[in-house]
């Protein structure tokens, strides 16, 4: 049994790359949406295909199993939550300052 496309070195599914490859795709759709799932492009066969597919030309790209969050992702999520909390505070302040009659 060959490995899955998701682990193959010929497979790429970065949404920005997909939108750049298919001009017009972002006009009425998006590579960042759920319907694409994690489908991508096979540069060996010039296919657009699902990541669970397999083929005899598989060559490992060592991508499978790296599901844990990257440090940069953790940092980004942390910043976003903190930023959101600060903005909520600003909103409360605006509400009390500019609309005191409502309280």
């Amino acid at each position: 049994m060959h490995g899955r496309c998701i682990s193959c070195r010929f497979f790429a599914n970065d949404p920005a790359l997909i939108e750049a490859t298919f001009p017009g795709l972002n006009v009425l759709s998006s590579a960042y949406g759920s319907v694409r799932s994690d489908a991508g492009i096979c540069s060996r066969h010039e296919f657009f295909l699902s990541s669970w597919q397999r083929c005899r030309d598989f060559e490992s790209g060592d991508n499978e199993g790296k599901d844990a969050l990257l440090p940069v992702e953790k940092k980004l999520i942390g910043y976003s939550i903190g930023f959101g909390a600060v903005l909520l505070g600003i909103l409360v302040w605006i509400s009390y300052t500019f609309f005191p009659t409502g309280h």
Partner: peptide, 29 residues
Amino acid sequence: VCGVSASMAIASSVKAKKEDLYTSVTLVV
């Protein structure tokens, strides 16, 4: 169903050629 989004979903499910998706994007838009 849903234009380009549906085309993208089906293309990946049936292992379509890249040209097939190009064609569908143009027709739908």
